[in-house]
Nucleic acid binder design. Structure first.
Length: 309
DNA sequence: AACTTAGGCGGTGAACTTTA
DNA sequence: TAAAGTTCACCGCCTAAGTT
């Protein structure tokens, strides 16, 4: 159910707001795996868990964040989960804020963080402000019919379920047209939602386990957790980046019962310094123990002056 | 027929509020 | 005060309707 917009557009470009500390954090986040932190600090299967994990890494409290912008009330932080389909980078629509809040203010200055849907690794980011053609396209929503015109900004409400307040969303179409989601991005894997769902349903709703392929020959690939043999369509791993896998049953224990997936190790992104290749690989393969989960903000030196401008 | 997209509704635990 | 119920903060997931 779509409702009319409540807040009129500003009609002018937002001034650019920057913060040196946040820029340093964003740079350092490239190649950061979010699964370990999500597993430790957030609820299993909670929908916003990776957003919460990123907030934790950036040193933010999972606070209400009501009318204020996430970062020092200057810059809003938004995760865009991306995956690859037919060679292109795609994403879903994105919730902006509650209907009671002004979405134009929320979107005035945004740090978009791109996270791969398969590996939940940060693959890039973009600082952005509401300006130019992207703003014009979004503002056109104000005059559009919410139901028939497919506006890029819309309000979604629940028909009978009043547990959830109506909220502003931006369409995935606009995220691509506005140039927010890059055309290509290293570290983005193909994702088959139907396979993922069925795989989880096959064993206690557990998420599939990953095995990295580093050029092993057919039949030589081993599970990094238990050493059992893992088989996958290696040609597909090479060409597309990943493939569902089968784990040998003998001796694997619970590991053998869970669904498995093999990805091409060379396609993982590598950050400038953190967390390092080895740690990223361990995190993706689920070999990073709880005690070894560290917080990004603790490793990025906070400058005396955040150099706001 | 196969694939893509838009639209609609769902899930989770913690924090908070109300009732007993 | 304790227990029970509700809201909140996060988007994620599924599927019918379009497209190729």
């Amino acid at each position: 159910m779509r409702l009319p917009l409540r807040h009129p557009p500003p009609g002018r470009d937002a001034p650019e707001l920057r913060c040196a500390h946040l820029e340093a954090l964003a740079d350092a986040a490239l190649g950061l795996a979010l699964r370990p932190a999500a597993a430790v600090f957030t609820a299993q299967r909670s929908r916003g868990r990776f957003g919460n994990a990123l907030q934790w890494h950036l040193g933010l409290e999972p606070h209400d964040g009501l009318a204020q912008l996430d970062w020092e009330d200057r810059i809003e932080l938004k995760i865009i989960t991306v995956w690859r389909r037919g060679g292109r980078i795609v994403c879903d629509k994105l919730k902006v804020c509650d209907l009671a809040l002004d979405p134009w203010h929320k979107l005035s200055n945004v740090l978009w963080v791109f996270v791969d849907r398969l590996t939940r690794v940060v693959v890039g980011h973009r600082f952005w402000r509401l300006a130019g053609p992207a703003r014009a396209a979004l503002e056109a929503s104000w005059r559009m019919d919410p139901h028939f015109d497919s506006p890029p900004l819309f309000v979604e409400a629940r028909e009978q379920d009043d547990r959830q307040a109506p909220a502003y969303y931006v369409s995935s179409q606009w995220l691509r047209d506005a140039g927010i989601v890059p055309d290509d991005l290293h570290g983005v894997f193909p994702f088959d939602a139907a396979w993922w769902r069925d795989a989880r349903a096959s064993f206690r709703r557990a998420e599939p386990l990953f095995t990295l392929w580093r050029g092993e020959a057919e039949g030589q690939l081993r599970c990094p957790r238990c050493g059992g043999r893992v088989r996958a369509e290696l040609a597909r791993v090479r060409e597309e980046g990943g493939s569902p896998a089968v784990h040998e049953l003998s001796g694997g224990g619970e590991c053998a019962l869970r669904p498995h997936y093999v990805i091409d190790a060379t396609r993982l992104p590598l950050g400038p310094h953190n967390p390092g290749r080895l740690e990223l690989e361990e995190a993706v393969e689920g070999r990073l123990s709880e005690e070894r989960v560290w917080r990004l903000t603790d490793r990025v030196i906070e400058p005396e002056d955040h150099l706001h401008w």
